[in-house]
Design a protein around this nucleic acid. Structure first.
Lengths: 260, 260
DNA sequence: TGGTAATATTTGACAAGTCAAACTTTCGCG
DNA sequence: CGCGAAAGTTTGACTTGTCAAATATTACCA
């Protein structure tokens, strides 16, 4: 019944349920208790709360599954988590375990607009020629060894060479690649979203706009539903939805984080 | 007596007291209540807690001041807050009010090592020739208008020109500037910390190491105690402490944030 | 089918934090 | 001085979240 925003604690429960349900079919109270390192009785409490809010299907002694609403809210929480964690790992070069723990705490408090900036920033860093993997590596080096600012000129020169190279390649082969030809793991930047129909409208609404970086997560055997990740959202699109989307390929993801 | 870590709530109280005491001489319960938008009776509670922990000087009906320990802990909380807020404003181009609110929530949960990365990253972005004010401006533009990746070549070329210009300047005038000749507001990067004595040891321990960016906050009339900010710490150093520190000047701070 | 172990739930206690209302102290001003 | 308003405190109630212990249910195996 209650419909006020979830507390941090309840968000944690829902998130745990979401990830457990993603792996298995359904969640048992014990799985949740173990995952959150909390007493089983606390879980029962939380389940009642979440059930009251119509986020989970639950009856005493029964197994837990998500309602549609719960799935949506859960996905959103996971998204927040992933975005932050990704930022820590990819940009701040924090090691994954710590990134994850920190994201866990932060996900409850970072407001939407700031979250959006985190996404954009990762995109920007990975995409802008002045950023990129090398630049981030330079940051990791800066953190561990201190600054070495002698070879800045070389660094920027190398950067310029890269841009020119990429530009020439771009003119010959990387324009308007069809999304379905890309392999899982590959990343691409949206260059254009054609069409004005409701479908392309929906696509734009989901964050697929020019400049957005998308990652191909999975292509079904027949090549039809393509799972992608854009702006933190995991989307599953059908082939015909993809026709209006032009992309250009990007290099692989940015380097590994540094142990803290 | 109790000496366990402060809760988020108590940290907020202590932070509020710290800032109020910085402005006036001492804090009244009402000031705190107003600042935190909390009932007066809740403040009394918190004051007891903080007093038990020897962080504040407090007696019923009396005014509140900080103990040395409280000042230290309070300064640390404020530092965490400032670091995060600065990151949001300077890097993510978030507007100041929102940055402040977000920092307020986050300051309680971000672990030290990650916090350190935030500092370093701001330094890196402001310092690395491939970053800098222009680059951040490009990010703000990217957030509001979407990507424009046509003139990347020009952008990097301009960047290269800047590096070379700076390099030439560097060779003629910016090496080994004395800290005391700098004006308030000016920023500089530490290039060397000379000496092996206990003083230079202490200086290094406070984060003044080669590569660190420092900002001059205030120079006393006689030029002697110089207030600086390094790695989020506000320090007050005497002239003789500064002798072993070589710096080079940096351009002004990075541009203004974008309204969200 | 019955019994045991694993799993869930209920209950009660507790800690932190908040507010509202009643009460006390302080302070300034006529 | 003394009175009233402002500020501070105490008390009690309530919320959220936790755990531990007692109790209940389920599942599995002989």
């Amino acid at each position: 019944m209650a419909d006020i925003a979830l507390s941090a604690s309840l968000e944690d429960y829902l998130e745990a349920i979401y990830t457990i349900v993603s792996e298995k079919q359904a969640a048992r109270a014990k799985d949740i208790a173990d995952k959150l390192k909390v007493h089983r009785s606390s879980v029962t409490n939380a389940l009642h709360e979440l059930s009251d809010r119509l986020l989970i299907n639950y009856a005493p002694y029964d197994i837990v599954t998500l309602t549609d609403k719960g799935r949506a809210v859960g996905a959103d929480i996971v998204r927040r988590h992933e975005i932050l964690s990704e930022f820590f790992v990819k940009v701040l070069a924090v090691d994954e375990a710590l990134a994850d723990r920190t994201a866990c705490e932060m996900e409850h408090v970072v407001p939407r607009p700031v979250l959006d900036r985190f996404i954009r920033f990762v995109e920007y860093v990975e995409t802008c020629p002045r950023g990129g993997a090398k630049w981030i590596k330079g940051f990791a080096h800066y953190c561990t060894e201190g600054a070495s600012l002698d070879d800045c000129e070389h660094c920027v020169e190398a950067c310029l060479v890269d841009v020119r190279k990429r530009k020439n390649q771009g003119e010959t082969n990387s324009m308007a690649v069809a999304l379905t030809t890309l392999n899982p793991g590959q990343r691409a930047r949206v260059t254009k979203v054609k069409g004005r129909g409701p479908v392309s409208q929906r696509i734009r609404a989901m964050g697929i706009t020019p400049g957005a970086v998308m990652e191909i997560e999975r292509v079904a055997p027949l090549g039809d539903p393509v799972d992608i990740k854009v702006r933190g959202y995991h989307l599953s699109l059908r082939r015909e939805d993809l026709d209006g989307i032009e992309v250009e390929c990007l290099a692989g993801p940015v380097g590994k984080p540094v142990e803290l």
